[in-house]
């Protein structure tokens, strides 16, 4: 349970960064004043969360340990966690360099492999169908100026 500490760090960073802008005073606030307040506020709530989580962990410590042991059968699945995100990034990178169609196909294919039960053939069919569908709707019907192929 890292939520509390991470948020605390984030709040502290915002609080510190706010001082690099002009703070001003209450009757004439500078651009740093409100962010400074928000950073401090976040720190407060984050500390509260950290406390609560610590309390919960102590009271349910025994139960938690047992569930961890019983959960060892499940391997950590990296595919469904990484591939959908990578597909988005790939789409962003390819859109203006390679064109709309390659970007769509690459993204569908990458995302498709996140699910083990998807066969390569199924993914190829979905990718082709999506490319045709989105080109028709967005480029021809809506007239959004995508370049279908940039190369």
């Amino acid at each position: 349970m890292l939520a509390g500490p991470v948020l605390l760090l984030f709040g502290a960073a915002v609080f510190a960064a706010a001082w690099t802008y002009e703070i001003g005073e209450l009757r004439r606030m500078g651009p740093g004043y409100f962010p400074m307040l928000l950073g401090a506020t976040l720190c407060l709530f984050a500390a509260l969360i950290a406390l609560q989580d610590a309390k919960d962990r102590i009271s349910s410590g025994r139960r938690a340990r047992r569930t961890i042991r019983s959960g060892t059968g499940n391997r950590f699945q990296w595919r469904p966690r990484i591939l959908p995100l990578f597909a988005i990034l790939l789409f962003a990178m390819l859109l203006e360099t390679a064109g709309f169609v390659p970007a769509v196909i690459a993204a569908v294919a990458t995302a498709g492999f996140a699910e083990r039960s998807n066969s390569s053939l199924a993914i190829a069919v979905i990718a082709a169908a999506t490319a045709i569908f989105t080109s028709t709707v967005f480029v021809y019907l809506l007239g959004i100026p995508f370049r279908l192929f940039a190369v």
Partner: peptide
């Protein structure tokens, strides 16, 4: 769902780009 989610994901990307270019 395994056929749908790649399409959803790409439609999200296309939609976001179409709004702001």
């Amino acid at each position: 769902y395994r056929y749908l989610y790649p399409v959803i994901l790409v439609l999200i990307c296309v939609g976001v780009y179409a709004v702001s270019s």
